[in-house]
């Protein structure tokens, strides 16, 4: 295996204000499959094309936002190795016991300098409804709603971007396909541990721990159009799109869940290899980088977060 260590984003846990409304949104509109409800009320979901038990966890709370974003490693030895490197870097590492989430092995968690909690784990059960692997059909049951195929990435807002960059690249082995550098410092970084254009991204922001969006992968531009149709049919609050990002080249719609957490449906995007140089945007061109057709940011891009 040539990709070692961390493999991909595996779990996002989101805070929602009303579980019933949120379930309707994530299951029936975005098209995730309901997996289970835990004893503590957390709801577990997965996209139809994902192999493992769950990827999206909803927790009812009195504020919206993100609890944590977790990356899956290729084995417990890798997790143990990262633990040592994270502690050597100077961050406190917390243990989460096996079974804290159903079907999920032990995890480690830590708070990065932007105020977000990141977790790493190696083990999760395969899903009973996982995609077929012997002479497979492309799906078992026709996908619902926006037909999300998988959890793709998230964009987080918080302070101390230079430290975040150093930590992800030096300690967690991410590379940086794309960035925005302003005269007074870095505005944003797109980072990947695989060869997707991004697995996680950050924008510099004074308030720590904020969520800009969580993105779900769709097959193509036709499905982006179909997702827009679903949004109007069910009065889902749309931020911008269908459009394209110049950065990553992904085609996209930003919209909001019933608690105000921003979601994205995303397709395309270039392939990013570790030996590719970083693409760099400056302040005069970043509008086209964020929204390629509009060629300017909207008011909400830099300010609306949960």
């Amino acid at each position: 295996m040539s990709q070692e260590g961390l493999l991909r984003p595996g779990i996002i846990q989101l805070r929602v204000l009303d579980m019933e409304e949120s379930l309707t949104h994530y299951r029936d509109r975005i098209g995730l499959d309901y997996v289970s409800t835990g004893e503590d009320g957390r709801v577990y979901l997965k996209a139809f094309d994902e192999f493992h038990r769950h990827s999206v966890v909803l927790r009812e709370a009195d504020s919206a936002g993100i609890d944590f974003f977790a990356f899956k490693a290729d084995g417990q030895a890798a997790v143990d190795g990262f633990r040592k490197r994270i502690e050597d870097y100077g961050l406190a590492v917390e243990d989460v016991a096996e079974g804290e989430m159903p079907g999920t092995g032990k995890r480690i968690g830590f708070t990065i300098p932007s105020g977000h909690r990141i977790e790493i784990y190696a083990d999760m059960e395969l899903s009973e409804t996982a995609p077929e692997i012997r002479n497979p059909y492309i799906y078992k049951d026709e996908p619902r709603g926006m037909r999300a195929q998988r959890l793709d990435h998230c964009l987080l807002y918080g302070p101390n971007l230079p430290e975040v960059e150093k930590f992800f690249t030096e300690v967690l082995d991410f590379h940086i396909p794309e960035r925005v550098d302003l005269p007074d410092g870095t505005l944003a970084i797109w980072m990947t541990v695989s060869n997707k254009a991004h697995d996680i991204a950050f924008v510099n922001h004074p308030e720590p721990g904020k969520l800009h969006h969580v993105a779900f992968f769709l097959e193509d531009w036709n499905d982006i159009g179909h997702a827009a149709d679903v949004m109007t049919r069910y009065d889902i609050s749309r931020d911008i799109g269908p459009t394209r990002h110049g950065i990553t080249r992904g085609q996209t719609i930003y919209f909001f869940d019933p608690s105000g957490n921003r979601n994205e449906v995303f397709c395309g995007g270039y392939t990013a290899y570790k030996d590719h140089p970083t693409r760099v945007w400056d302040g005069n061109h970043v509008g086209r980088g964020i929204f390629y057709y509009e060629r300017q940011m909207n008011d909400a891009f830099l300010s609306v977060v949960t």
Binding site: G65, S259, G260, A300
Partner: peptide, 24 residues
């Protein structure tokens, strides 16, 4: 967000009666 999560639309009602739904 139009859904009570982000705080962008925060206002103060200075006169009148109203109802609100769940928000952050």
């Amino acid at each position: 967000c139009r859904r009570g999560g982000c705080g962008a639309c925060r206002v103060k009602v200075t006169k009148g009666d109203y109802t609100t739904q769940k928000s952050s």
